[in-house]
Design a protein around this nucleic acid. Sequence first.
DNA 1: TTGAAAGCGCTAACAG
DNA 2: CTGTTAGCGCTTTCAA
Lengths: 351, 351
Amino acid sequence: MTETIKSDGVRNMARTKITDVAAKAGVSVATVSYVLNHVENQTISEETRAKVEEVARELHYVSNRAASSLKNGRSNLIGVVIPQAEPGKEILLSDPLYGELLSEMEYKARRMGYHMLLSGLGDDQDYSGVVRNRLLDGVIIVGSYPAEHLSDLAELHAPVVLVDACISDARFHELTADDRAGGKLATEYLIGHGHTKIAYVGEKSEKGSAADKRYAGYADALAEHGLSLERDRVYHGKNSFAYGEKVAETVLAHPDGTTAVFAASDILAIGLMHGFALRGVRVPEDISIIGFDDLLVSRMVSPALTTIHQDIAAKGEKAVDMVLDAMVTPEKRQSETLPVRLVERDTVRRI
Amino acid sequence: MTETIKSDGVRNMARTKITDVAAKAGVSVATVSYVLNHVENQTISEETRAKVEEVARELHYVSNRAASSLKNGRSNLIGVVIPQAEPGKEILLSDPLYGELLSEMEYKARRMGYHMLLSGLGDDQDYSGVVRNRLLDGVIIVGSYPAEHLSDLAELHAPVVLVDACISDARFHELTADDRAGGKLATEYLIGHGHTKIAYVGEKSEKGSAADKRYAGYADALAEHGLSLERDRVYHGKNSFAYGEKVAETVLAHPDGTTAVFAASDILAIGLMHGFALRGVRVPEDISIIGFDDLLVSRMVSPALTTIHQDIAAKGEKAVDMVLDAMVTPEKRQSETLPVRLVERDTVRRI
DNA sequence: TTGAAAGCGCTAACAG
DNA sequence: CTGTTAGCGCTTTCAA
């Protein structure tokens, strides 16, 4: 390793490269490559192998992935995209759900020998350029993606897994929770506790989105139990704590009263709880509430939130499994729906 | 773009490359490179420039970063490391703080033309191999990093910014919040509200860590106000909701009573609140509590948590600024301490 | 069982 | 103002 001056004037240790290892070990670069990459069908004498490995260790050799990527077109990189709520702001910020999901994906990817490239995405932006530029081996998109750029994604060589996407598109693999069943479960639980004046609070969102399916489940349950879906008990807004807090007032103002709320996400439910508390309305004594997601924080609020649990850890891990599988069998389209279940805590009372 | 069969048998569209653009535009590859990279000091006729840009667009040309990285040794990639709490589990999972921080860093990096490589890290692992393998241009390490591998990091060509690190090491740039001042501020606020029996709950952690400095601030405030630091009012445990919930009982069991708690993190404070609620102890009527961090969730709990605010968004943005600056002026060591401030909400009462 | 050598696509020094 | 060309470090085919 000799001291060199780079053209930009930065003083740098020249990196050990495969030729250095080859020279010191007295073999060719090919042999070094074979040994270090554990190339199958390439028989190497035990002696040579040991020698190469020893020298590589001695020289602290680390391969240059730019070179191998250039050669073989792969990057060992999975791109994870979390589209942004607001243009230019907040990516995973607004909902802790994303942090939990990401965390799991990163851990799984790492165990499988991949790294994770994390990106937010503005409303109108296209990710396919990044995929090509960085030679990403696979892509996971969480949430919605601008419809006008879906085709560009589809033309990529890299498999794309859509997690909780609004659209169902045969060109992509998809992973969701059983949102409709969960919405139904939540609503039936309220009905089972004697509630009939049940409000729905959820994100105003595209057809086919998770929120939309949760709403459908709400409608299913009402219909099945002979309750009519009253439009004025349905509140649509942003999927945020702030909106929940704000809409609490509107919910309380319903002329006929409301005894229970199904919030389509925990973050909304927690906002509602806060809004109720602000107005001296007690949960669950005065009004019951059930959420959806089972965030880590949902058991931290007081009272602890009754909610529909989705296994976020499993979702993150599964998403990575799916891209990796798709890299091996690109022709097989994968579509998975993860089960949900009810978690009884303290925000619903029997009336 | 012709259809090719790769050696692995995968059918693939051959990528448009710079030679394709050059050929179609009737110029050399050098010219294309100059135009597309906006190379300074390289005067290109407006006509040529326009032609090249047009052709590049027509052909949907996207450069191959493996090739440029190989050539110039840079990746336009910033590595962000979040050491794991438990070996093999939970990276940013346990504390929503990380999600907020990450989010900001990613957004800033993206605006600056970089991508973010996110990694967790086991207790004994070394990141320097990744930095060399991926030619990372800069590294941000959040939290603690295994001391035995610090030297490897220091030898890298890439600048390293330690965010909230335990150690202060001249070989690295560092970014922290003013934890000690914050700890003092919190404790003084309690004292100012008439409290004298003030407990401290915080993570048992290394000397020099954020938690340690917050504790020092607590001690400062007590000393300055003539209160003695009673060891049996100091509770050390894991920085988690669960520990806060559990330790609530111990805090309440103090023979002389405790009227206020300074929790060294919001996640602990919220755990404590929950633990108190479980035991029918009201906040702030029966016991006051103040936290540290001002997480998004801290205003979501009821009552909303009084806490020391640190500007997590600013911290994330600053961290990225610092690595980018360090890439330009590697010789200048940067060390920044961000201010904190008190946010009065509803968990401390005057006695 | 090993080695020689041809690129992968791009940048930038240098020549024109 | 534009083009030629020598690599960057690695993988892999083919020959020995």
